[in-house]
């Protein structure tokens, strides 16, 4: 069997008396879209935060391409090539598209101005941002310097996905990318996700929207009560099966629970 790009064993995360992750296992294989579904409070967001470094787990191990890693901040995860698009998008509304795309990894000018005065190379950053947006078919964005708050919900999501796709070399995690969007905007974002997958980057997709999950996912990780209940193939199960698993109405017949 191929080696997982990203995997985890026995992850535990407690918030006070609440156990958000209870010895959870996880595997993501190259080139796939893995959907993570689960009821509210099942610990999906905690799981991805543990994987990306935003909320380091209390116990358990995370592996990137078989190598043990110890992320303590989102920057550690990003350096390892794992990019996350959070449900809140994690963007600064008053800053420009370029500023947001390069937040925390700005490009400095070469020579004296950049080295000693730390001046940013605005031109290089804008060029890069424009390139990445047009790669993803967001060519219609004319003004790369306009503040993010002037964009519509779908456009913001597009910028967030473009940011992740531009820098995520190994894994891209998407947390509820279509939850706040209208039908047409969702459709466009789903196409973006497929575009990114077609470039060979595996994707973790967290969603409540069963039609979207079943349309995109290669495998579905069902999360329940802080752990992985089972992994199902969307071609072999129906949406109602999946919902029954995640709400506990039905037990999976071939349990792969940890």
């Amino acid at each position: 069997m191929t080696q997982p790009v990203l995997s985890a064993k026995n992850l535990v995360k407690r918030y006070g008396k609440v156990t958000a992750l209870d010895h959870c296992d996880f595997e993501l294989y190259p080139g796939e879209i893995l959907a993570v579904i689960g009821d509210n409070g099942a610990g999906k967001s905690t799981l991805i935060k543990a994987l990306s470094g935003a909320a380091p787990p209390d116990e358990g191990e995370v592996y990137v391409e078989g190598k043990r890693v110890n992320f303590t901040s989102p920057n550690d995860g990003r350096e390892a090539g794992i990019e996350t698009v959070y449900q809140t998008l994690a963007m600064s509304p008053a800053l420009s598209i370029t500023d947001n795309m390069f937040m925390g990894r700005e490009i400095r000018k070469k020579g004296f101005m950049g080295k000693y005065l730390r001046q940013l190379d605005r031109k290089a950053m804008e060029e890069f941002a424009r390139q990445k947006l047009s790669d993803l078919g967001l060519m219609t964005i004319q003004n790369i310097t306009q503040p993010v708050e002037t964009l519509s919900g779908g456009q913001r999501q597009g910028v967030a996905v473009a940011r992740a796709a531009a820098f995520g070399s190994k894994v891209i995690i998407l947390d509820e990318p279509t939850a706040a969007l209208g039908v047409k905007e969702s459709r466009r974002v789903l196409e973006l996700i497929q575009d990114v997958r077609n470039r060979g980057i595996p994707i973790i997709l967290i969603s409540h929207n069963m039609p979207h999950v079943f349309e995109l996912a290669d495998r579905i990780h069902v999360h329940r009560l802080g752990r992985r209940l089972c992994v199902i193939d969307p071609k072999e199960y129906s949406m109602s099966d999946a919902v029954a698993f995640m709400t506990g109405a039905k037990e999976p017949d071939a349990p792969r629970a940890a």
Partner: peptide
Amino acid sequence: RHVYAVGDDAEAAALSG
């Protein structure tokens, strides 16, 4: 830019590095 980002939304700034 980080000063502005922190003032705008500190949590978002932290998540974006």
